[in-house]
Design a protein around this nucleic acid. Structure first.
Length: 336
DNA sequence: ATTCCACGGGAAAGCATGGACC
DNA sequence: GGTCCATGCTTTCCCGTGGAAT
């Protein structure tokens, strides 16, 4: 029943983007000067997760690449590349300039200098999760570079600009800012339908079932596609050629925990141990948590390090911290 | 009102890693 | 082999906060 599994992957970029026409036009306009060999406006994409920011950015850049024969582009996820060095390194990677870059021979600004001297075709850089950068000055550095156009993606506008100093924010005044709202039910159904058409056999799933998925996803397209994928795999495993309502019901919690499970796997053993204690306990105070951790592990890390781990896990949406100071407890984020 | 103390998180020093160079 | 050196991760030190105990 699955004809093309790629279509059901979360990071798949479709041929046509549905329900994002105004946003697509704005982004196109921002990048349009490139077609005339002029520097593009910096574009900001804001909105909650699963609203198509990343997808649209990739889509537009790809389309631009087809229209203008000669542009370079690179996608950088700042969650994974959150240091100044890694960010710039990845950008250099996009133009194949890293071959002879060694850490030693790169005192501070050598990398940047190399980018500055870049003299090729227009270069579009998409910086995703840009609010995860530990040092926002990178943006300033990149902004001063000729020949490089930026598309910046973040969840919340206010939080991002709170971390940018005036030096930069004044320059970013006349940028294109595009907001993405959560998808409505019908929009999500449309997105799912498009994937179904390309990825599944005909009649594999009906409209009302797509609505159920869309409803459960609460405006988040990534979750919706995850549920669809899970249900399709389930049906395939069972050897049926239709996705049943029961399969969908079962897939809803599983798709959510799938995301979580994948995140947990990226944690170190120590972090996983902490996470396990928290999930087993439901809700626990930092003192007790450290006490249990210390007993269960040989060679335990410091309290301070545990705190680093905990903040990291909070950012990853694995756990939630409730209360301040004395009254603080940690609990797992519920999957329901 | 004052002191106490668990907690959070910033800053900087310490340590391990890994590539480049001789 | 040995040595630099920049990086990331951990630890040490420390201070601010705000509720609880005195």
């Amino acid at each position: 029943m699955i004809r093309d599994a790629r279509v059901l992957q979360a990071d798949f970029v479709p041929q046509e983007v549905v329900h994002r026409d105004p946003e697509a036009n704005q982004l196109s306009n921002a990048l349009e000067p490139i077609t005339r060999d002029e520097p593009a406006e910096t574009a900001f994409l804001f909105g909650p997760s699963g609203t198509g920011k990343t997808c649209l950015a990739k889509f537009i850049v790809e389309r631009l690449r087809r229209e203008v024969i000669d542009i370079e582009h690179q996608y950088v996820n700042c969650w994974q590349n959150y240091t100044r060095f890694r960010t710039i390194y990845r950008i250099l990677e996009g133009i194949g300039q890293t071959l002879d870059v060694h850490r030693q021979s790169t005192p501070k600004d050598e990398l940047l200098e190399r980018l500055r001297q870049y003299d090729g075709p227009p270069y579009v850089v998409v910086l995703d999760e840009v609010d995860q950068l530990e040092d926002m000055d990178v943006l300033y550095d990149l902004y001063t570079l000729p020949n490089i156009s930026m598309v910046l993606i973040a969840n919340r506008e206010e939080e991002l600009f709170a971390r940018i100093d005036e030096r930069l924010s004044s320059r970013l005044m006349n940028t294109t800012r595009i907001r993405f709202d959560k998808y409505g039910l019908n929009e999500l159904v449309g997105i799912l339908q498009a994937r179904v058409d390309r990825g599944l056999t005909a009649d594999a799933i009906g409209r009302s079932q797509l609505e159920r998925i869309a409803d459960a996803a609460a405006g988040d397209a990534r979750v919706a596609i995850g549920i669809l994928r899970n249900a399709a795999q389930r049906a395939e495993r069972d050897g049926t050629d239709q996705i049943t309502s029961a399969a969908i019901t079962d897939s809803i919690p599983e798709a959510r925990s799938e995301v979580q499970q994948r995140t947990v796997e990226t944690l170190t053993p120590h972090q996983q141990q902490l996470y396990e204690i928290i999930t087993n306990h439901g809700s626990i105070t930092p003192g007790d948590l450290y006490e249990m951790y210390r007993e269960q592990v040989d060679d335990p890390k410091t309290k301070r390090t545990m705190r680093n781990y905990l903040t990291k896990m909070c950012q990853y949406n694995l756990i939630v911290a409730e209360g301040q100071n004395r009254g603080r407890t940690y609990r797992p984020v519920s999957v329901s």
